[in-house]
Simulated scan of single mutants.
Amino acid sequence: MTAFAPQSTTFAPQQEWDAEPRRTPRSSFAGLAVNGDAPLTPVPGTARAQVEFDFPGVRIGTAEYAEGPTGVTVVEVDGGARTAIDDRGGAVGIVGRYPFNHAIALAGGSVHGLAAASGVTDALMERAGRRTGFADLQVVSGACIYDFAVRDNAIAPDNALGRAALDAAVSGSAPVGRVGAGAGGSCGKTRPEATEWAGQGVAFRQVGELKVLALVVVNAVGAVFDRDGTVLRGNVQADGTRRHPVVDGHEAFAAGGVPSEAALTPGNTTLSVVVTNAKLAETDLQQMATQIHSSMHRAIQPFHTSLDGDTLFLLTTDEVDLPVYDPRQGLGPSIASFGAIASETMWDAVIESVR
C-alpha cells in the first residue's frame, strides 16, 4: 500500500530501467490458425512482477492461450459497482456499456475477443445459482485490443478463456508485463520496425481511507513516456535509441506532407480500468473518468488517434465519503484533486505496463 504524498519518489523518473529494445515481429497474415484448429488450454501466463493492492472485494485475474499468445484480464467487484465509461478514438471495440457492472473483461483478439466477456457473464450466473430474475442478473462489460499484427495466427480469447480468467481472479495482487489481455500489446508504432512490446500495468494508491486501483493494457499507436519526458518504449530507431513521435511529424510536414511508405500501424487500443471506493455522484463519476483518461496523454503520445480505440472504465464501490470542502478556498480535498491523484496512479500503471 502506497500512501500519497506530493514529494513521493514514485513520481520521480525511473531509476532502474531495462532500456534494451523489445522489438516485435510482424504478422504475414498467411495461413492463419484459428481456435478450432487445435485444442486450446488456458494458462496463467508469465508475469514480469506482481503489484500488491489493498482493496477488499476487488479481484483481478488473467488467463491466456499460449498458442497466440493472447489473453484476458478480468477485474471483478463483489456486489458490483456503478460504472462510468470514457471511450475515444476511431477504433473502439466494446461490449456491454452498462452503468453498473459486476466485472470488466479486457481481451486480445480484437472483436473476436469480446466473446470472453460472455464467458465471464456465464460463469458469474452459475456462481449465483443460475438465477435469472432481473435483479439477479450478473452484468459484465468488456473491451478488446487488436493484437493480430504481432503474431502469425488468428487465435482469439473466447468464452472458455473468459471463464478461466475469472476463476484465476484474486485479491491483493495483480500481474504486470506481457500477461493477460496485455500478452500481445505493443506501442510506438510510427513504423512497423519502430514498434516495441508493451503489456499490462497495475498501480495502487491510498489517501486516508480513499483508495484508487488502476489497471491498464497498453496497445497504443503512441510511445510511452516517463515523467521527465523520456521515451520508455516505442518509436525505437535502427540504432536502438528512441525518439519523440513529434519528431517524425515534424519531418513529415517538412517533407511537404508526403506520407512515408511505412505509415502508422492501424489496430491500436489502450484499455483502462480504475476502481475507487469514493462515493461519487453520477456527474462526478463521469467527469472523473474523463479527467483520468485525458491525463493519460502525458504518458502516451500520440493518444486517442483515429487509429486507437482507447476505453476507460471507472467503477466505484461507494464506500467512503469525500471530505466536505469550500471551493472558494482552492482545490483542497475536492473531486478534481482526487481525480489528479487517480491520474498519477494511472501514469504509474502505464509505466508498469512497459517496464
Rank of each mutant, 00 (worst) to 15 (best):
A3L: 09
P6K: 05
Q7C: 03
A12I: 01
A19V: 11
P25V: 10
P25L: 09
R26V: 13
A30P: 00
A38W: 04
V43Q: 14
G45S: 03
R48K: 13
V51C: 05
E52R: 15
G57T: 10
I60F: 04
V74E: 12
E76W: 13
P99H: 11
A103F: 08
I104Y: 01
L106C: 09
G108A: 02
L114E: 08
A115C: 07
G119L: 12
T132F: 15
Q138R: 15
G142M: 05
I145K: 00
I145S: 00
F148N: 01
A149G: 07
D152W: 08
N159S: 13
N159I: 14
L161C: 12
A164M: 07
A165D: 06
D167L: 14
P175D: 14
P175E: 12
R178S: 14
V179D: 05
G185Y: 01
S186A: 14
K189R: 15
E196T: 10
Q200M: 10
G201W: 02
R205F: 01
Q206S: 11
V221K: 00
T241G: 06
R242G: 03
V246Q: 06
G249Y: 06
G257E: 06
V258K: 11
P266C: 10
N268G: 07
T270F: 01
T270R: 00
V273Q: 05
V274N: 01
A281M: 11
L285S: 07
Q291Y: 07
P302A: 12
D310V: 04
D321H: 10
R328D: 12
G332R: 11
S334D: 10
A340Q: 13
W347T: 11
S353R: 01
S353W: 00
